[in-house]
Nucleic acid binder design. Structure first.
Lengths: 153, 153
DNA sequence: TCCTGACCTCAAGTGAAGTTGAGGTCATAT
DNA sequence: ATATGACCTCAACTTCACTTGAGGTCAGGA
């Protein structure tokens, strides 16, 4: 396959074409489909055929991942989009605004952590019960009290 | 065992005592030992006995993890500390300063990402090759060019 | 007709940071 | 004497986001 005939521009895409045009591996596309992030129909020979909106969906997935959004959350979000319709700028605005809020919060958490660290570099006590670096509840609280994994990703 | 006899204050600690005083699970202590992050000797009955400096080491491990440092890196750093000697404030200063630099950089990366996102929320193009959100090399470059996982943790 | 390349499925492996479980030992309290 | 609780080892399981591999199908070109 050498040159794309303009008449084919609105044809659906094979998995290899999607891989090439989106920059993700074929296996990743299979994987995303298995997780319900994207959808396809099958050709007569049982091959996947993807509507073109899959490219935009994959773009959204990849950006969201850079923002630190887990795939399961992305899947939720993508389910709010009409099936097979290319996500509009409006859709993107809605999704990305939500993710930006998450990102803002993660930045805030890390910044507080850094400030706490700054104060503690000189101190060095690290005592459980006194050191703000060791006790998440104080100024560094992330998500309210209660037992919680200390994972500030 | 009810009240700690002050005369026992300089005794080595069992794994259960370490767990209680450090706030981590016994299984985690086993795991850290298997990874070389901490060390112990064995009692006559083949039980682990930890020198008291293990508490401070675990404190350092936990703080480093909050900062996002992987265990393998922490292990490297801890190997620069004399065996069995409680890490001094000086030691802590050295280690934490290095980790703070990492943290600063991660905050910087996320901040750039957020700014890029801000610009792109209105745009919505997401095109591979044009959108700064999709192309790590531009203003958002993390670590120089070359193929690289897009994982801004 | 045969070969090649793109595609298919399903299972298993990767790595990080542990957790869980089975089966066994040891010391002490009743 | 026995039961309890703390400890021991080793293997397998967990989650996330994929990748790798084995074995098989299908369409087009020489």
């Amino acid at each position: 396959m050498a040159i794309i005939d303009p008449a084919d521009m609105d044809k659906d895409l094979s998995v290899g074409e999607v891989a090439e045009r989106s920059g993700v591996a074929v296996s990743t596309i299979h994987f995303y489909e298995s997780k319900g992030l994207i959808a396809s129909w099958r050709s007569s020979g049982n091959q996947r055929r993807f509507p073109r909106d899959v490219l935009r969906r994959i773009a959204i997935i990849k950006v969201a991942q850079r923002l630190g959004v887990p795939l399961a959350t992305i899947a939720q979000a993508l389910k709010t989009l009409p099936d097979g319709r290319t996500p509009t700028a409006e859709d993107w605005k809605r999704l990305s605004a939500a993710w930006k809020a998450d990102l803002d919060e993660r930045i805030a958490v890390l910044t507080k952590l850094r400030d706490g660290l700054e104060g503690c570099i000189g101190c060095g006590c690290l005592s459980l019960g006194e050191c703000p670096l060791r006790n998440p509840w104080d100024e560094l609280s992330e998500d309210g009290p209660g037992p919680r994994l200390l994972d500030p990703r």
